[in-house]
Design a protein around this nucleic acid. Structure first.
Lengths: 202, 202
DNA sequence: AGCAAAATGGCACTCGGTGTCAAAAAGAAT
DNA sequence: ATTCTTTTTGACACCGAGTGCCATTTTGCT
C-alpha cells in the first residue's frame, strides 16, 4: 500500500461490496415502485444494478430478502438496546429500546413506506414480516426473563407481555404507515406504552 | 339416476373431488415424513396421489397450501364460534371459541404434530403459520370490538388484548407440540386464560 | 509486475407455478 | 343405452426463482 489512506478504513473490496449491495437495493425498490414486486424479475433487478443475475443472488439469497435488506442489522441493533441500564425496570428497558427502534423507523420513513406498500401487495411477504416481528418479540421476552428466575409461570408471563407489546406496536406502526408516516411515530409509541402500562383489564 | 342413492348426498363428482384432495394431502404428508418438505417435489406428490402435476395444482394452488390443508375451514369454524352467546362477556366468548379450537387441535393430534415438524423445517413456513395466526387474531379483535363502541382507544385495547391472547396461545400450543402433544391441550389453554384473566401487571 | 485469493458471470439444471388446449369423464336428457 | 353438454383432466410449453459448476476477472499483497 502506498498512500491511498484517505477515508478508506475498509478496503476497496468491502467498499465495492457495499456499493453493489446498495445498488441492488436501490434497483429493486425502483422496479418495485414502477411495476410491482411480482413483475420485477431478478434478471431486471440485477441488470439495473449493473450486475449479473448470478451475482445478485450472491448478495441476496432470495428476492424476498431484497425487501427486508437491513433486517439482520435492525435485529442486532435492537438486541443491543435491550441491555438493561442502571435503575431501569425491565419494562422501561423494553420501552426505551422500542422507542429507539421507532426513531430509526422514522428516520427511514421513505423506505418504510415503500416497504409497506410492497409487503401489502404480496400476502406471503406479510408472513415474512410477521416472522421478523416474531424475532423482536423473542428478544423482548428474553429481556423480561433476564430480570426473573426461570419458572414456567414467569416464562409464560414474559411471553404474554412480549406478545402484547409486539402486537400493540405492530398496530401502532401500521397506523403510522397507513397515515402516510406523516405523524410522530415516537409519540404514538409512547402513547401505546402508556396504554399498556395503564393496564390490561378494564 | 336409477337407484344408487345409498349414502351419497353429494354426486360422484364431488366425491371424487374430495377423494383426490385427501389423496394429495396423504401423499404429501407421507413424502414430507419420508424425505422432508424440500425434497418432496410436486411431481412426486402428484404421482403418489395418482394424479398429474397439473391436476395437483388445481387442487392446491401451491405446495405450501398442502401443508395447511384445512386452514380456511378452521378459520371459518373459529369465526362461527366467536358469535357471542347470551350472558357471555366478550372475554368469555373468545375463551370458549379458543378452547373449542384447541379441542379440534387435540382431535387432530397426529397431523398437528406432523405439520409442526414440517413447519419447523422450513423457516418461511413459520411465516405462513404466523399469517394464519394473524387471521385468528383479527377475528378475536373483531369479537372484542363487537361489544364496544368504535373509538381509537377501544380499538387499540381490543388489538392489544387480541394480540396478547394469540401470543399466549401460540406459546401454549407450541409447548404442547414440543412435548409430543401428549398432554391435555384444553387444560393448558384454560390455564393460559386464567393467567391472562389474572392480570397483566405484576 | 506478479501471484494467490476472492468475486464475478455465464451456462445448464431443478423445481414451483401458469396458460393453453385436446381428450376424457360426469351428468342430464331422450 | 345413446347422445349432448359441461367439467375435469393431463400433456406440453413456458416463465421465474434458486443453485452447482467453472472459466475469467478483479483485488490485495509482495
Amino acid at each position: 500500500m502506498t498512500s491511498t489512506a484517505t477515508t478508506d478504513d475498509l478496503g476497496l473490496r468491502d467498499r465495492n461490496n457495499r456499493e453493489r449491495r446498495d445498488a441492488l437495493i436501490a434497483a429493486a425498490y425502483a422496479l418495485f415502485a414502477e411495476r410491482g414486486f411480482a413483475a420485477s424479475s431478478m434478471d431486471d433487478i440485477a441488470a439495473r444494478a449493473g450486475l449479473s443475475r448470478r451475482t445478485a443472488f450472491r448478495y441476496f439469497a432470495s428476492k424476498d430478502d431484497l425487501v427486508f435488506p437491513e433486517q439482520a442489522a435492525r435485529q442486532a441493533q435492537f438486541e443491543a438496546l435491550l441491555v438493561p441500564r442502571e435503575g431501569e425496570s425491565a419494562f422501561e428497558t423494553v420501552r426505551r429500546a422500542c422507542l429507539a427502534l421507532g426513531r430509526h423507523y422514522q428516520d427511514d420513513r421513505e423506505r418504510q413506506l415503500a416497504q409497506f406498500r410492497v409487503i401489502q401487495s404480496e400476502p406471503w411477504l406479510v408472513g415474512r414480516e410477521l416472522a421478523i416481528d416474531r424475532a423482536l418479540e423473542a428478544a423482548i421476552e428474553h429481556a423480561f426473563m433476564a430480570a426473573e428466575r426461570e419458572t414456567p409461570r414467569a416464562r409464560r408471563r414474559a411471553r404474554v407481555r412480549a406478545s402484547a407489546i409486539t402486537g400493540a406496536l405492530r398496530a401502532t406502526v401500521r397506523e403510522w404507515l397507513e397515515g402516510g408516516a406523516s405523524t410522530d411515530l415516537v409519540r404514538l409509541g409512547r402513547e401505546t406504552f402508556a396504554e399498556l402500562e395503564a393496564g390490561f383489564a378494564g
